[in-house]
Amino acid sequence: MSTIVCITCPRGCTINVEQVNGEWQVTGNSCKKGKEFAINEMTAPKRTICSTVKTTFADAPVLPCRVSADIPKDKIFDVMKEINKVVVSKPLDRGDVIIKDVLGLGVDVIATSNLLTQI
């Protein structure tokens, strides 16, 4: 049996998860999302990553960004490398795509602020 802490919400439930006859048994979770998280954590753990990309704008040298959906945990540093290659030169708005389908993961890197449209 494995004990994990759910990171889905600030409640941070301690969840016990174990495989019995090919079925995942999850206890200690307070909601459906916790069960889903626990099973994912045992089979294919995923995370959201948030970072910044460089820009050519002097008043806003970096633009905050994140992945549009969770990515496999073991791809975090590969995606970071892609994010750090980008230099934004257009005044992108919040939600605009910075990198389409990053590393073929089916997930985009998107801007999380409209700060470039305000300068």
Binding site: P10, C50, R94, T112, L115
Partner: peptide, 25 residues
């Protein structure tokens, strides 16, 4: 929130996992 670029904001209020700038904006 301008510098809190990580996510996890707004779960209670919007039931969404927003970054700091998204929540503030």
């Amino acid at each position: 929130l301008k510098q809190c670029i990580h996510d996890g904001f707004g779960l209670v209020r919007f039931n969404e996992k927003l970054s700091g700038p998204e929540y503030a904006e």
